[in-house]
Amino acid sequence: MSHEPPGDDALLRAVARGDSQALADLYDRHSGWLHARLTRRCSDPETVREVLQDTFVTAWRSADGHGGGAVGGWLWVIAVRRLADARRAAARAGSRDLLAARAPGTAPSAEEDVLAGLEYGDVGAALDRISPELRAVLRATVVDGLTTRETAHLLGIPEGTVKTRASRARRELRAALVALGPAGGAAC
């Protein structure tokens, strides 16, 4: 767990030079978690497969544009935008099943998981109390770092709705924190 792997940056520079072995290494490092993260946002395996493939092909072609930040974050931005594109294409094709699947995969909320994995204490418990649609908006804007417009693409809802849901999510989160008692306040 503590070993430091050879730098992602060097790998990406090799990719930019056209080294396909470096691309394979990059894929082995990052494809798994990207797949897991995408699957949480899209329940259609075929779409996830396409987005994953597009992400690495795009990385291959635009590796020289990488500005030097964290490679994982860079790949994720590509992937989540591709996912938004796929959603748009699906909305155009009228296949509502994809859109219907936009609610995040709701896993059984095990108390231990929340406490073990989460470093901001009761905020996690509060998050689990707000509705899945609101959480999806929060996740897209806060965790995935998308703009309002990109969030609208990803979730297949109008930008106005993104804004209303984001502010509702903040209100409900605050209410949930208050309901959870003073421990929530102490987490500040």
């Binding site: 020289d64 544009g65 990488h66 930040g69």
Partner: peptide, 19 residues
Amino acid sequence: PKAAVPEAVERAMERVGLT
């Protein structure tokens, strides 16, 4: 934004089938 250009270019070319 400068860092977003290469990917944006790839995406645009792909969407019109010019990759």
